[in-house]
Design a binder for these strands. Structure first.
Lengths: 221, 221
DNA sequence: GTCTATATGACGATAGAC
DNA sequence: GTCTATCGTCATATAGAC
């Protein structure tokens, strides 16, 4: 009986996983044109080459499919940041580190707009990600907090900096850049995007390196 | 013939305007629970107390209704900022002025979440606001630019500040605060919101007043 | 595991009577 | 100006044959 074999080595299980992956990929591709909330299972089935009811052999509901897409997106961004982590921590200033981190985030969001919308907005009113789907996103925040702690320990941030507040402010800044870019000029890429272009000066004010890009008058002295 | 009378004094015209307003109000109320993209004309008609086809006597399509809602939202936020303009320009520092402006924006967005989503995100894939609907939003940006110019002229911003870049960065910051608050904790109000709470420190870094809330290590000297 | 067939109901929009 | 009736299309989801 196949049930006695480890799941990963079962040929049928492997084939099933491939089908699941294909369904998710097709769903993401369709959401890019129809909008995240406008996904139609009929369209998904047509693109996959099966009939609609067959999808229910893989996902018990439409929201379960959303949850799988959410999970995939969260894992993808976590992997992307993870791959850049060494580079981010290698640079010698908080400005360079956070600008690089922000650019990695911005680039990922522009090349994965569907995932970004699903992860960072709430485009489907009756869908809430499951804890398992959410977990990589939590881990991403934890890793970012660790990045901030590392910068502080290396003397690149004020020793008395409130890490949670700093983390919050930085996330807000990056979220602002991404949301403006996606909402107003989604066709621009990460390099030419007019809102992504705000990252250097925002990061500069954040890391407090005075000079070009800072707007406030210097305090009278 | 009623057509020869000025439209504004025509009783029938007035009644018609009232019905249009009611339809818009109902639509906004329903979008608060069903999501902006999930609006159903059947629900609207039911709440208004008419049958669905009757709505087509007032709006030629569903997107035309969205456009009317968009217009109303844009006018509302423009009026809100306009009402606060005197207070904003009365204060004596860029920090106070921009924090107040940000708070007015944040409060409006939290109490008008449907409008905020429709104006600042793109929740309905096949809806694009008409130029008329968009015009108040353009005027809002122009007024904000004028606010920045005024701050610079009063010596509260660096005399060589790039106003367009400053405006962009500030809009990005406020958009970040609002989008994070709406997406992650829409039930919190403007006073207790954990992301709205980032406004002071963000504004402080923006206006470059050093001290509490700034994270970067001071440059070695 | 995939299919046909179907339940069940929504949707936006139109035609035409009154 | 509102209605009934309906068009045509779509949706998610289920039952049961093969």
């Amino acid at each position: 009986m196949s049930q006695t074999l480890p799941a990963g080595t079962d040929r049928r299980h492997l084939r099933r996983q491939q089908t699941i992956e294909e369904i998710i990929e097709v769903a993401v591709r369709l959401m890019a044109t129809s909008g995240v909330a406008g996904l139609s299972l009929g369209d998904v089935a047509r693109q996959v080459g099966v009939r609609t009811p067959s999808l229910y052999g893989y996902f018990p509901s439409k929201n379960a499919l959303y949850d799988a897409v959410f999970t995939r997106g969260a894992r993808s961004i976590l992997a992307t940041i993870g791959a850049a982590e060494a580079d981010i921590t290698a640079v010698g200033s908080a400005y360079d580190a956070l600008l690089l981190a922000g650019r990695v985030m911005g680039r990922w969001c522009m090349t994965n707009q569907v995932y970004a919308q699903l992860l960072f907005w709430r485009p489907v009113p009756d869908f809430t990600p499951s804890p398992q789907a959410y977990q990589p996103a939590v881990e991403l925040v934890d890793r970012t907090r660790a990045l901030f702690a590392g910068l502080r320990d290396r003397g690149l941030l004020r020793p008395d900096a409130d890490l949670d507040a700093a983390l919050r402010d930085w996330i807000v800044m990056v979220a602002g850049v991404v949301s403006q870019q996606l909402a107003n000029a989604p066709e621009e890429d990460a390099e030419t995007g007019r809102f992504i272009a705000a990252l250097p000066s925002l990061t500069r004010m954040f890391t407090h390196e005075y000079g070009a890009g800072a707007y406030g008058a210097r305090p009278a002295r």
